[in-house]
Amino acid sequence: MSNQIKFSGVKKVFGSGPDAVHAFGPVDMVVEDGEFVSLLGPSGCGKSTLMLMTAGLLDLTEGSVSIGGTPVKGPQTDIGIMFQDNTLVPWRTVRGNIELQLEMRGISVASKRAEIDAILASVHLEDFADRHPYELSGGMQQRAAFCQAMIHAPNTMLLDEPLGKLDAMTRERIRSDLQSLWMEQRPTVLFVTHSIEEAIQLSSKVAVITPRPGRIERVIDIDLPYPRDYEVKRSPEFSAYVHETQEIFRGYGVI
């Protein structure tokens, strides 16, 4: 089954009358099956709004979103979502939080024991399965949140600045984990970020979004070999992409 995400004339206006805020769009874009696409833009440009509309958690004012050819109407349950603030609940352990995702969906936890152990090991959290979120560092919490968001093995992932609140070094590490995971399983990923380097390092395409009302200014194909490690980041090609993106934001007076 295809996981292509298609945006056609997507527009969002909050409120109505003279107080209405035109937050986003209109936007047209296609995210092909297995692509890693970043939505890169300044804060307040409506990146998260687009994410929520894709997940079916927020109504569109105009236009349509479809995933795998099916129009999004209401919450999409076969995708994995990570929100800006993690959704770990304090009364459950890391394992319990992962099980919460399954329990909420009515999936038997007993049948998924091996999968839970595997996903915990893939982010190096196997020794922290029985800890509560408050016993973990910020980086470990985000890893746990990632396991929670992905345990039902979705083919489409929506990641809304999942690394936004982490320190630079932890970000760097989790980025490379995320990259290996994507290379291995090839899900379709829509990744929201305001970090130019992060977007270029991870994505096959970067959609550069203008300040509010957010529109897609340009979709840049990032033609760099994976895995994009430290060497790639120091290459002149990488710098050229960074430069190209920065020029767009400078044109808008964002940076």
Binding site: L57, F83, M104, R105
Partner: peptide, 10 residues
Amino acid sequence: ELTLFSRSTG
């Protein structure tokens, strides 16, 4: 976040 999470699970 938890409201959205709950809705996203169906």
